[in-house]
Nucleic acid binder design. Structure first.
Length: 470
DNA sequence: TGAAATGTTGGGGCG
DNA sequence: ACGCCCCAACATTTC
C-alpha cells in the first residue's frame, strides 16, 4: 500500500506553521508541488511585481524542500488527477485560499479527487479566523470593522497557536516527469522590477528575520512612528504575509510576546484589518469589480489617461503624492500613510475611478493582495463597507507638513527638488524665481507644475460625491 | 486612519 | 477703568 502524499503549495511558501505540511509529515513520502494555473484570476491577471516575487518564492521554497518542489503549469484538476494516477498517491493536502474562484475550483477538485478514493484535506494557514465563522448576534456578517474585530474576532476563540516545522521530512519528485506541465517563468521585455533584487530578500528565513528586526526596533515606537514614512517603524512584512513566507499566527503570537500596550493593540488591529478585508471578500465576491455601496455606480468619474499616467509615474507636481508613487515604482512597496494620500488624490482630486488605482497597485505592489487591495481602495473611495466618508479628502500639502515635516521622505524619492528649503518643498509652485534658481530647478522641466488646482479639485469632488450620496 | 468653515474665548493695544 | 477691535488659539460644525 502506497503511503505517498501530495502536498500542494499555493500561498503558503513556508515550512513553519504549515498545517498541510504537518499532516503530510505523517506519511513516509511527500511529493510537493506548485501549480501556476491560468484558469485562476490570481495567476491569469498576476501583476508584474507579484510575478517576480512568485518566481523568487519558488526558487527559495524549492531550496528549503531539498530541490524536490515540482513547479507546474496548467489546469490544476487535470494535473492533480494525472499525478495521483501516475504516482499512485493516496493523499493530497493543501492550505486554503479565499479568492472566490479559488474556492469554487478547490471545491470541484475535492469532489473529483474523492471519486478516486483519495483522501484530501484542506487546512487554514492564512487567516486567524475563518470568514464563515464570524457572525454578529443576529447571525449576519459584520459590515463595520470595530464590532467585527472587537466582538466578532477578539471575543470568539483565540487564534490557534503556531505549529512548529515537522522533523524528518522526506520529499521526492514524481517518477514520471510530465514535461508538458513544467512551469516556465516568462520574462517580460521591460524588466523594471528587477531592481527589487537589491531591496528584497525573498525566503522564509528572511521573512522571519525581517519581523524579528521589526520587533526589536520599530515595534517599540509603532503607534506613533507608523505614521511617519521616513521612520523605520513599520514591519514591511505584507508581501511575505501575502505569499505565506510568514504565518499570521506567528505574527500574532510573536507580537503578543514582544510588543506592549497601545503598540501591540494597534499592530494586532492591523492584522484585524486584513481579516476584515478577507471577510468582506468572502461575503462580497465582486469586491474588486463593484462598488459595495451601489449608489456610487452613478458617480461621474473623470476619464483622463494623461492625468492617470502622471499619477502613476509620480508627476503630479504635488511632492508627497509623487514621492509615494515613486516609492512604489522603485521598491514595489508603499508606506501605508502614502497609500492613503496617493489614493485619496487619485479618487478625490483627480476624480478618477478607484478601479484604475487598484489596477496600478495590483501591478506594482509586491504585496498585491486581492482582498486587501480591493477593500482598501473602496475604503479610500468611500464606496466600501465601513469606508472613509466621501468628504474625507487628504490635503497633500498639510499631510506632508504633518507626517514628513523635514521632507526627508520627499527628498529621498524626488531628488530633483531636494535643494528647495523646507518652507517651499511642499509647495514648489510658490517658490519665486530666486528660490528656484538657488535650488537649480526650472518648474515645468525639472519638476512638473501641479496638474490640478487643489482647492478647486477638492470642491469638485465634494460636489460630485454629494450629488450621488443623497 | 481629514480639512475647511464657522464659532467662541481671551489677551493686548488703543482711544 | 472701560469699550472696542483685532487676532490668535482653540472648539465645533460641516462637508
Amino acid at each position: 500500500m502506497s503511503d505517498k502524499c501530495i502536498l500542494w503549495f499555493r500561498k503558503d511558501f513556508r515550512l513553519d506553521d504549515n498545517p498541510a505540511l504537518l499532516e503530510a509529515s505523517k506519511h513516509t513520502e511527500i511529493i510537493p508541488i506548485f501549480i501556476f494555473d491560468r484558469n485562476l484570476e490570481e495567476y491569469n491577471s498576476i501583476g508584474e511585481a507579484s510575478y517576480w516575487w512568485l518566481e523568487n518564492s519558488l526558487i527559495s521554497l524549492n531550496k528549503d524542500l531539498n530541490n524536490k518542489l515540482s513547479i507546474l503549469e496548467g489546469n490544476s484538476l487535470e494535473i492533480i488527477i494525472n499525478l495521483i494516477k501516475e504516482e499512485k498517491a493516496k493523499y493530497i493536502y493543501w492550505n486554503r485560499c479565499y479568492e472566490p474562484d479559488r474556492i469554487d475550483a478547490d471545491t470541484l477538485i475535492k469532489k473529483e479527487i474523492r471519486k478516486l478514493n483519495v483522501i484530501t484535506k484542506s487546512f487554514n494557514s492564512s487567516l486567524l479566523w475563518e470568514p464563515w465563522n464570524i457572525k454578529n448576534k443576529s447571525g449576519n456578517f459584520y459590515k463595520v470593522f470595530t464590532p467585527f474585530f472587537k466582538k466578532g474576532c477578539l471575543e470568539s476563540v483565540e487564534p490557534r497557536k503556531p505549529l512548529n516545522k515537522p522533523k524528518n521530512l522526506f520529499f521526492l519528485k514524481p517518477h514520471k516527469r510530465n514535461y508538458n506541465y513544467q512551469f516556465k517563468y516568462q520574462h517580460k521585455k521591460h524588466k523594471w522590477y528587477l531592481k527589487f533584487v537589491k531591496i528584497w530578500n525573498i525566503s522564509e528565513t528572511a521573512a522571519r528575520a525581517k519581523f524579528d528586526n521589526f520587533l526589536n526596533n520599530g515595534a517599540r515606537d509603532y503607534s506613533e512612528g507608523r505614521n511617519f514614512p521616513y521612520k523605520n517603524s513599520v514591519s514591511k512584512i505584507s508581501a511575505y504575509l501575502h505569499w505565506g513566507q510568514i504565518s499570521p499566527f506567528r505574527l500574532w503570537y510573536e507580537a503578543k510576546r514582544k510588543m506592549l500596550g497601545k503598540h501591540l493593540e494597534i499592530f494586532l488591529s492591523e492584522l484585524g484589518w486584513r481579516e476584515f478585508s478577507y471577510h468582506l471578500l468572502y461575503h462580497y465576491p465582486n469586491i474588486n469589480k463593484q462598488n459595495l455601496k451601489r449608489q456610487f455606480d452613478k458617480l461621474d468619474w473623470n476619464v483622463d489617461e494623461q492625468l492617470l499616467s502622471k499619477w502613476k509615474h509620480g508627476k503630479t507636481g504635488f511632492p508627497i503624492v509623487d514621492a509615494g508613487m515613486r516609492e512604489l515604482w522603485e521598491t514595489g512597496y508603499m508606506h501605508n500613510r502614502l497609500r492613503m494620500i496617493t489614493a485619496s488624490f487619485l479618487v478625490k482630486n483627480l476624480l478618477i475611478h478607484w478601479k484604475e488605482g487598484e489596477k496600478w497597485f495590483w501591478n506594482c505592489l509586491l504585496d498585491a493582495d486581492l482582498a486587501n487591495n480591493s477593500a482598501s481602495w473602496q475604503w479610500v473611495a468611500g464606496t466600501g463597507s465601513d469606508a472613509a466618508p466621501f468628504f474625507r479628502i487628504f490635503n497633500p500639502i498639510t499631510q506632508a507638513q504633518k507626517f514628513d515635516k523635514d521632507a526627508l521622505y520627499i527628498r529621498k524619492y524626488i531628488p530633483e527638488i531636494a535643494k528647495l528649503p523646507n518652507k517651499l518643498i511642499f509647495t514648489p509652485w510658490l517658490a519665486d524665481r530666486k528660490d528656484l534658481e538657488d535650488a537649480n530647478i526650472t518648474l515645468g522641466i525639472d519638476y512638473p507644475h501641479p496638474i490640478i488646482d487643489y482647492p478647486e479639485s477638492r470642491k469638485r469632488a465634494l460636489d460630485a460625491f454629494k450629488k450621488i450620496s443623497n
